[in-house]
């Protein structure tokens, strides 16, 4: 059993209900016995299985239907942290079963979730959480199952711990799993380079309005761009060039900045805390967009924001 001082991140590759329970039941039972908060964020079917197997003990188990426990990676991290903040007890570790949904995701989303699985080792580092991420090999694509062994330092099989020899340093891993990217079209609208946020804000607003966004959605799009720009400009003595174009389903903003501070791929995954932190605005930009991709190439940093366009019927 890992000690309770830092983040422990294990995968569990299971191919049957019995294999899932062989991992989950002792993990939950031992946690509850130790007085630790325990969360199972998994499929409704697995929650049912687990509850039946736990019997009376199931009353003490926190559960969440995983598809709604953070729909996107940044929301997922926020959900983990929120659970920890609300449930943690002094001196006690928190246990989580966290099974992502993989089926039906787009190539971009699969890449984002793989990167997040790796990034959790960095973003949640130091948090007294023991997290096991189950992967159902009956339904999960092969490449995702393989990725689990690269994004988790070890996996559990029942109660047996097996180190993952394919585990990769998160920085190196995400470099090898780039998000699909369509370059800016030649006709993309341009602004800057400039260090003046009001100029970027006016441009962002004009492009959002031209894309058909209005009211609250327009204001949130402008805010996302300004927070991303503000993050790049914060070190001072740099300028940001902003481009915008429309793709089916999305308004895309691309911010280019030479000479800003080094930006790691997991920047902006932690929600703002009690004290202000440099990445707070980037977290908001991530949260307000469908996707925020960070790429660095030498001194050049590129932030690409995908914002759902007016045809996103969920936001009608």
């Amino acid at each position: 059993m890992p000690d309770g001082t830092g983040f422990v991140h294990h995968a569990c590759l299971y191919g049957t209900d019995a294999e899932f329970l062989a991992m989950a039941v002792p993990f939950v039972r031992d946690g509850l016995t130790a007085g630790e908060p325990v969360l199972a964020a998994t499929t409704p079917a697995n929650i049912d299985l687990l509850r039946r197997a736990l019997g009376e003990r199931a009353h003490a188990l926190d559960t969440a239907e995983t598809a709604y426990f953070g729909r996107r990676p940044v929301e997922r991290v926020s959900a983990f942290l929120r659970y920890h903040d609300r449930r943690a007890r002094p001196g006690r570790r928190v246990r989580m079963i966290a099974e992502p949904v993989w089926n039906g995701k787009s190539a971009r989303q699969v890449a984002e979730w793989k990167r997040m699985e790796s990034g959790l080792n960095v973003v949640l580092s130091g948090l007294p959480v023991w997290m096991i991420c189950p992967y159902d090999t009956r339904s999960t694509p092969d490449d995702v199952v393989r990725a689990a062994c690269a994004t988790h330092p070890a996996r559990v099989d029942g109660e047996r711990l097996i180190p993952c020899s394919a585990y990769a340093d998160p920085g190196a891993y995400v470099a090898g799993v780039p998000l699909p990217r369509a370059p800016a079209p030649p006709g993309a609208a341009r602004c800057g380079p400039t260090a003046r946020v009001p100029v970027l804000r006016a441009f962002a607003r004009d492009r959002a309005a031209a894309a058909g966004l209005a009211g609250e959605r327009l204001a949130l799009a402008v805010l996302a761009v300004c927070e991303a720009a503000g993050y790049l400009l914060a070190p001072g003595d740099v300028r940001v060039a902003l481009r915008a174009w429309e793709e089916p389903g999305a308004l895309v903003y691309e911010l280019l900045c030479a000479g800003s501070r080094p930006v790691h791929a997991f920047a902006g995954f932690r929600p703002p805390g009690r004290e202000a932190a440099p990445e707070d605005g980037l977290w908001l930009a991530r949260t307000l967009t469908d996707s925020l991709d960070i790429r660095t190439q030498g001194p050049l940093t590129r932030l690409t924001l995908h914002i759902p366009d007016p045809h996103d019927a969920e936001r009608l």
Binding site: R201, V222, L223, C226, E227, G230, P272, D280, G281, L284
Partner: peptide
């Protein structure tokens, strides 16, 4: 007209 996250804080 505009309030960023730092302002909300």
């Amino acid at each position: 007209e505009f309030l960023d996250l730092g302002g909300v804080r």
